[in-house]
């Protein structure tokens, strides 16, 4: 028992000394404050960002009208977005990035129309719709 007490006392003292001199006395390691979000958006994944990009593209009047012409309501597309795979959604979002921010001049209009054609095709494909020319 005396031997045990002696041994326990020794190890306790050693631990206390180590704590005092080696751990507590050493300065804490400086670290970078990690990257933060702005707190202004709800984006926590690439999918969230793709969803926003597609939803903004669907707000384009010409695109919405083209989709309606093919019998697809933009609301229907939005409802379908949730069930799209990440890869499909990314394809759609990437296509929508080509829309010009202003389309007043001739070149802007041409590019917008081309992008809209591509977007309509991608959306119709993702919604399993087919365009039949008779």
């Amino acid at each position: 028992m005396r031997r045990f007490r002696g041994s326990l006392g020794f190890w306790t003292a050693l631990f206390a000394l180590t704590w005092l001199f080696a751990l507590d006395a050493a300065p804490a390691l400086a670290g970078l404050a990690s990257s933060r979000v702005t707190g202004a958006t709800a984006i926590v994944s690439a999918r969230d960002a793709d969803l926003i990009a597609v939803q903004r593209a669907l707000e384009n009047k010409v695109l919405a009208q083209k989709l309606r012409d093919y019998g697809v309501a933009p609301g229907e597309v939005e409802a379908r977005l949730a069930s799209l795979t990440d890869a499909d959604l990314h394809v759609l979002a990437s296509s929508s990035k080509g829309l010009p921010s202003g389309g007043d001049d001739a070149l802007g209009t041409i590019i917008a129309l081309l992008v809209i054609v591509v977007l309509v095709m991608v959306i119709l494909k993702l919604m399993d719709k087919k365009v039949v020319i008779k």
Partner: peptide, 14 residues
Amino acid sequence: VILNDPLTAAEHND
């Protein structure tokens, strides 16, 4: 022609 960037600065950051 400036192509549309659908995301805002904050969205790009996040």
